[in-house]
Each structure stands twice: as structure tokens, then as C-alpha cells.
Design a protein around this nucleic acid. Structure first.
Lengths: 229, 229
DNA sequence: GGTAACTTGCTGAGTGTTAAGTTAGTTAGG
DNA sequence: CCTAACTAACTTAACACTCAGCAAGTTACC
């Protein structure tokens, strides 16, 4: 499995670019940490996938541990950036005196953003799953824990009475959303496959989104949450 | 960290008992495969925890792979044995012409059994999570896939009209139950801890059970599922 | 004494980290 | 403009370690 770089030495641009190398190493590390876990992902393979040598990841990031921390930070930042718009709209809906939109519409966009993010970035789910299995110590070291979802449901809860909602527990809402959204991604290779479902099927994702919104509205206590599918 | 076995050679009963050793090895292997995963769990440590030597696990189970397969089989069998009674009652409720109990009661027992099993046997959840992360190839090799939950919801769906239930999708019900029940166990070290919750808190487990039953009844379409908490 | 139930020594493969070596880019001085 | 001096960006090699699997040995029990 040797790469044929020697046979094409002058062709491809083999220029030195630290930023490019850093990014390539981070991307490779994210994939491999997600696929194999911290211990089983070797710096050699990370370097190989990034197109650099065995020692380069250490050269740039100091240690495997620091490289991993950087991967975690990038994942958290990307998640926040992706979810913030939709979930801030949810908070704003709750804060409005007379919202112009139905709650279902705003909530559906938030759930949709979450599902899309998880689907586009399965590495995120895998790394988080592995963190959970490892005790979550490294994840807890993150300084920016990203509470976008918690904040939105917290605001919604505080303004529940004003909108005729139940006095639901925001934590339960978070557990509900996360549980239902994570599972199909985390278990795409086991449970989902056993039921003949796939994350690549848009119809399944649409159903799942509507389903989650339905359950959340029921939990939150939106009056019109029952009825036909 | 050497054990002081040499200083007390004759005292403890060091009798030879193949069946006892097998069981001890299986238990140790389950714990370590759950805690560290297939690759990172070493046969040496498994032997140490089981009170035998490095080579004994291989002696009894041939290879690490076969030992792992045996652990998987035992987990699946234990799960089936534990869930079958409660979920069969659910099927029987659906098959009955005029059930004497409300659906909520039977469903609550089934959900309760599932939650209790997961809580008592976190190794089960961890091993399954690791299987999902590893692609689930080894899990798929199991000959007895254990469809207790699927069967119950399938029967319920087939008899839905007779009980005034919605024509719900049984797979969605499974995903809902599994997602909501797995998450708190799988992420006990991350999400749960961050929200100050613990699986050791009986009140939390009771709330969770009621919550899951509520959402399932809503999904299934039980008319009286709404209302006060 | 014979066999099942183990234990111990060995081997080859693979790991993270470090240190030394090498090469490409950059810049200052003429 | 040109080139020598310098620095940043890597590569290669070595070290100390762990592991699974095998083979050979040892011990306990019928």
C-alpha cells in the first residue's frame, strides 16, 4: 500500500504550507479519531491520510493529546456555528409578545438544523459517543461547552405560561431531542441497518424530523400537537 | 503493582474448576470489552481480573475474537431472558379481544423492564455502543438477533384498529423507545452529568419511565395520552 | 500415570515520543 | 538581480513499551 508519490515527483504541487498541513492533519485526525478512537488512531496513519510524514502531527500539535483537544474544539465550534441561528430564532420566538409564526414552524427549523448537522458530520457523533464511553473527561476539559440547545429550551420554559405551554422540564426536552436525533446517526450501522433504513434516504429523514417535532410539541404542551399524521 | 499471591500460596483455595474459570473469564471480559473496547482490552488484564493467568482466556476460548463472540452471545441471551416476560404481555394485550388492563399499565411495565435491564447492565449498552461505532460487523454475526421489542410493537400495530390506536409505524416506536432509553445510560458520563442527573437517582428513573411511556402512547395514538403530568 | 487445567517464555508487530537530519522558502546585503 | 545566511517545515530513525498468539512447560486431580 505504498503511495506512488515517487513516480510523480515534480507534477503535483508539493509546496510547503503550514496552514494547509495543519488543516489536513486536523481533518485526518477527526476522521480517524471518530473511526477508531483516541488510542487506536495512530499518529502515523493520521499523517499518512493528511499527506505528511509520521512525525509531522507531533511537530505541529506537540502531542497526540493536544491534537485530540484541538479536534474537539473544532467540532464544538462548528456545532455552535451551525445550530446557533436556528435555535436563537427559537429563543426569540419565546421572547416575542405576539409571535407571528406558529411554534411548530420555528421548532421544525431548529430540529432540522440539528438533524442536518449530525447527518453531515457523523464524525461529530462518533467522537462524542467515544467520549461518553471513555468517561467524558477530555470533553469536560473544553472551555466553551456550547449550550445553544439548552438556552433555547430554557427560554421557552421561562416564557411557557405566556404562550399557553405546559410547565415542562427543559432538561427532559433536551434529552428527548438529543436521544431521538442521535440514535439514528450513532446506530446507523446496527439498529438502522437491521430495520432496512438509511440516513441517505431523504424520506426517512423527513419522517424523523416531523416525528421528533411532534413528540417535542407534545412534551412542551402545545395544544394543537395531537391529531392526524 | 504486583499482586502478593506469592506470599499467600497455600491459604486461598486454588482449586481447579474449569466451569468457574470460564464464568470468571466471561465476566471479566464483558467488563473490560465494555470499558475499553475490543482492541484495547488485553487478554492479560482479562486474565488478571478473572484471577487466572495471561494465557488462560486463550486456552478456554481459543482466540480473543471467539471470546468476544461468546460475550456478545451471553449479552443477547440475557437481554432476551430479561425482556421477554414483559414484552410478551404487551403482545398478549394486543391480541386480546377485550383487555382487562389499560394499555398504559402494560406498556409501563415493558418500558420499566427495559430501563431496569439497561441500568443494571451498563456493560450491555457500552458493548452495543462500541459495536455501533465499529460498524456492527461482529454483532451482525450473531445467530439469535433477539426481536422481542420489534415483535411486541409489530403485534400492537397489526391490532391497532381493534384497540382504537393510530396506524403507527412499529419501527418508529422501536427507535423512540430505544433512543430515549439508551441515551441516559450511554451518556451517563457526559450529557447526564452536565445536567446534574444520575442513574442512581430513583426519582429521575421514575420520571424518565413515565416520560417515555407518555411519548410512546402519544406516538401510538392512545386517545387519553394527553393531559396533566 | 495420564490427561485436563492451567502458567510462563518467546516472537513479531505496532505504538508515541523525541532527537537529529534534510530540504524548501525567505530575506538581507552587495 | 543575485546569492548567502537563516529559519520554518518537514522526514527519518531510534527507543522503550505493550500486545496476541504460540509453544513448551508445570501442576493438580481422577
Amino acid at each position: 500500500m505504498t503511495t506512488a508519490t515517487e513516480t510523480a515527483p515534480a507534477a503535483s504541487a508539493r509546496t510547503r504550507d503550514a496552514e494547509r498541513s495543519r488543516r489536513a492533519i486536523l481533518a485526518a485526525a477527526e476522521e480517524l479519531f471518530a473511526a477508531r478512537g483516541f488510542d487506536a488512531a495512530s499518529l502515523g496513519e493520521i499523517g499518512e491520510r493528511a499527506g505528511v510524514s509520521r512525525g509531522t502531527p507531533s511537530y505541529f500539535f506537540g502531542s497526540k493529546e493536544e491534537l485530540y483537544a484541538t479536534v474537539l474544539e473544532r467540532l464544538a465550534a462548528d456545532r455552535t456555528a451551525r445550530l446557533e441561528p436556528a435555535f436563537r430564532q427559537l429563543s426569540q420566538w419565546a421572547l416575542a409578545k405576539a409571535p407571528t409564526e406558529p411554534l411548530r414552524a420555528v421548532l421544525s427549523r431548529a430540529v432540522g438544523a440539528y438533524l442536518e448537522f449530525l447527518r453531515e458530520r457523523p464524525s461529530f457523533v462518533d467522537v462524542i459517543e467515544r467520549e461518553a464511553l471513555a468517561g467524558g473527561a477530555r470533553l469536560a476539559e473544553l472551555e466553551a461547552p456550547s449550550t445553544v440547545i439548552e438556552d433555547a429550551f430554557g427560554t421557552l420554559r421561562r416564557r411557557a405560561r405566556a404562550h399557553g405551554l405546559r410547565s415542562f422540564d427543559p432538561t427532559e426536552a433536551v434529552l428527548c431531542l438529543v436521544g431521538l436525533a442521535y440514535l439514528p446517526v450513532a446506530h446507523r450501522a446496527t439498529i438502522l441497518r437491521r430495520h432496512g433504513l438509511s440516513l441517505d434516504d431523504p424520506a426517512f429523514l423527513r419522517r424523523r424530523r416531523r416525528h421528533i417535532v411532534d413528540l417535542l410539541l407534545h412534551l412542551i404542551g402545545e395544544p394543537g400537537s395531537g391529531g392526524a399524521r
